[in-house]
Design a protein around this nucleic acid. Structure first.
Length: 347
DNA sequence: AAACCGCTCAACCGCGCTTTA
DNA sequence: TTAAAGCGCGGTTGAGCGGTT
């Protein structure tokens, strides 16, 4: 007997969420906090599956989410984190607290994978005009994520393969980024022409001044989402201290100034972000995947305590990536040994 | 102007894994 | 120990949009 569905399929609404539904969901979470999703449809009257509610919250309604154009820096972070971690989108998203794993996955699939493929194939014409390229092929073989789940490779094989993959990815990445640096316009830069009106923005601007997408167009629903965001903002301002992010902008455009997750920075984050490069200085090197330790670290931090996860020090990753073979920076061997010998630390 | 086509992305599904009671 | 609940992810779908013909 298999696992029962998270909800019965009868009478469950599917499809895009309406602003009214968003408000209902947000109001409920405002009162009860996220979690116990199974009870959400029951208690709110939403004709939605509990999983759908959770996804809607985590991907779109949760405070601190930035939507819309990815900055060059975010793009580069995604690229080299993907090279490091494979398609572990949640892990990657933990370094970009304003972005959701779904958002990053979509961005990777629709933009970055294509760009990297073109770069690696020696084609430098990476203008991302939608009509200059054929539809993305679903090339599943290029995933670097270990597929131990599906193919049952052993941990040893997994690690060797990961190490090989990492080396390959690092080479490719160095090439890509050197191309990027050598050109006046970033090779990997976000092509705003491809993003157009489909970019949804919660009414917040990115504080990256290098990002020239100062004007976003927004769809009707984006503005609806913006309304929800404003509703949340108001709620945050009047909420008890434990729930109130100590920032005037809960949607966190100033993530690098207030990090790790603006709007969530009241959660005693283990890392600080560098304002400009976005790197993370390690405040607490020793974190554990142990649930108890995580819980201990986030005790009494409010209703969003499940939304911050400790992440490995990105500065180390960056140093390792960019300085590999050039300068043996402090911590590189550490990182390699950590990542390959102590999975509990990195993963 | 309309049909067609390709792209984007929100949303869904299914599955395996982990956590919790 | 077990089942339920939740999480993370890969894969996919389809509406909406914009460019091309």
């Amino acid at each position: 007997m298999g696992r029962p569905p998270c909800c019965d399929k009868i009478g469950v609404k599917k499809g895009p969420w309406t602003p009214e539904e968003d408000i209902i969901l947000v109001s409920y979470i405002q009162e009860h906090g996220p979690g116990n999703w199974r009870s959400v449809p029951t208690n709110t009257g939403l004709m939605r599956c509990s999983k759908s509610c959770r996804l809607r919250w985590t991907n779109y309604l949760r405070p601190g989410i930035k939507r819309g154009n990815f900055t060059d820096h975010e793009e580069k972070m995604i690229i080299h984190l993907q090279a490091l971690l494979g398609n572990r989108w949640a892990a990657i998203a933990s370094y970009l607290p304003q972005r959701t794993d779904n958002d990053i996955k979509n961005y990777w699939n629709t933009h970055l994978r294509k760009k990297l493929r073109m770069i690696q194939s020696g084609c430098h014409d990476v203008n991302d005009h939608p009509h200059h390229h054929h539809r993305l092929h679903r090339d599943h073989n290029e995933n670097t994520r270990p597929k131990s789940r599906s193919n049952g490779i052993s941990k040893g094989q997994w690690e060797r393969r990961l190490q090989t993959d990492i080396q390959t990815a690092k080479r490719a990445l160095r090439e890509a980024l050197s191309l990027d640096k050598s050109s006046s316009g970033s090779v990997l830069s976000t092509d705003s022409s491809t993003r157009g009106s489909s970019d949804h923005d919660l009414g917040n601007n990115n504080n990256n001044n290098n990002n020239n997408n100062s004007q976003y167009s927004s769809s009707a629903y984006a503005s609806s989402t913006g309304n929800i965001a404003r509703l949340l903002e108001g709620w945050m301002k009047k909420s008890p201290t434990s729930l109130v992010p100590k920032t005037e902008n809960v949607h966190g455009n100033d993530m690098f100034a207030r990090c790790p997750s603006s709007g969530l920075d009241h959660q005693y984050p283990p890392f600080e972000y560098n304002n400009h490069c976005g790197s993370i200085s390690d405040r607490s090197r020793s974190h554990s995947r142990s649930g108890q330790e995580d819980r201990d670290a986030t005790v009494n931090v409010g209703i969003f305590q499940d939304e911050i996860k400790p992440v490995p020090p990105l500065a180390m990753l960056e140093n390792w990536l960019f300085e590999d073979g050039l300068v043996v920076g402090q911590g590189q061997e550490d990182l390699i040994s950590v990542s390959l010998d102590d999975n509990s630390t990195l993963f």
